[in-house]
């Protein structure tokens, strides 16, 4: 059981990072982004590409990949989301567009990297024993980095001017506009943060499993479940939701065949929507 909880925390940290980005985008941009899974995948493949083509060390490749994914997000805003916003298209149209983005990115990756599973060029990590649980040093690093990233998000949201502008924009877009907030800039930054976190989550997911073009899409359900569980739009809720979803999925494998673990997040999602639609932590 402890082992399952440990696995759940590792997986949950990844889901949490992804769900924070999803939730932020939902709050600021006001739509459910179905391409978010692909942003994870993109981040992981960027890291693989940089690690393989530049001789700079894996850590640097990862940082580069996060920056590249964030930059991609800003470019995508310029090319797709912003024209949609300024033409006054509604949320549903933008959601359908996000599906198109998801399909295009996933299949572009299939063309360039083939659909096969790939691994990061890293040595196999040694297992260590902590209180009866076996975890690899890599997994410990993943959890520590995830926690650091969450603290960073917290600092960003609560302390920085950008965080305040984001909150103002989410609460009342018209008022934010009048009060002199550069809305387009805040939105670009939101995309950069959301996609940077997605890239980080994608790299981590690739580290503890492997890479394939479907990897992000395959966990879009737990991501949404985590965001909804935490009250969609609430970044802290998304963190908690991610961990809860991760642990519940892993614990379920003690009772159910492991193939069904993703169904657990679906059931949690339905239950939350039926009985507590604003999520465990309230919010939008």
């Amino acid at each position: 059981m402890e082992q399952l909880i440990a696995n759940g925390i590792i997986y949950g940290c990844i889901i949490a990072l992804a769900a924070i980005g999803l939730s932020l985008a939902y709050r600021i941009l006001n739509f459910a982004n179905f391409a978010h899974g692909e942003f994870l995948t993109l981040g992981a493949y960027f890291a693989l590409f940089f690690a393989a083509s530049l001789d700079l060390g894996f850590l640097f490749a990862c940082i580069l990949a996060i920056a590249a994914t964030a930059a991609f997000g800003v470019a995508l805003d310029r090319l797709a989301w912003r024209p949609m916003r300024s033409s006054g298209a509604n949320r549903t149209a933008i959601m359908i567009l996000s599906i198109g983005v998801s399909i295009a990115i996933r299949n572009a990756l299939i063309i360039f990297f083939r659909p096969d599973a790939l691994r990061f060029p890293l040595p196999v990590s040694q297992g260590i024993n902590i209180g009866g649980m076996t975890v690899t040093s890599l997994q410990v690093e993943v959890v520590l980095i995830a926690i650091a990233a969450m603290l960073l998000v917290h600092a960003l949201l609560s302390r920085s001017t950008l965080g305040k502008s984001m909150r103002a924009l989410a609460d009342n877009p018209d008022l934010a506009r009048i009060s002199g907030i550069n809305v387009d800039r805040v939105i670009r930054c939101t995309w950069a943060v959301s996609m940077g976190l997605a890239a980080l989550a994608g790299i981590m997911y690739g580290l503890i499993t492997h890479l394939n073009p479907n990897m992000g899409w395959s966990i879009i359900l737990p991501m949404f479940a985590a965001a909804i569980l935490g009250g969609i739009g609430n970044a802290y809720g998304a963190m908690a939701g991610g961990i809860i979803i991760g642990i519940s999925q892993e614990i379920s494998t003690a009772f159910l065949p492991a193939e069904y673990k993703i169904a657990v997040s679906f059931l949690i999602m339905i239950a939350v929507l039926l009985f507590r639609p604003r999520g465990l932590m309230g919010g939008g």
Partner: peptide, 21 residues
């Protein structure tokens, strides 16, 4: 075969994007 079905799917995604825009 993977490249061509991939290319077709990219096109499908772009059609969806283009139609919405």
């Amino acid at each position: 075969p993977t490249a061509s079905s991939g290319a077709r799917m990219v096109l499908i995604g772009l059609i969806l994007i283009g139609m919405m825009m």
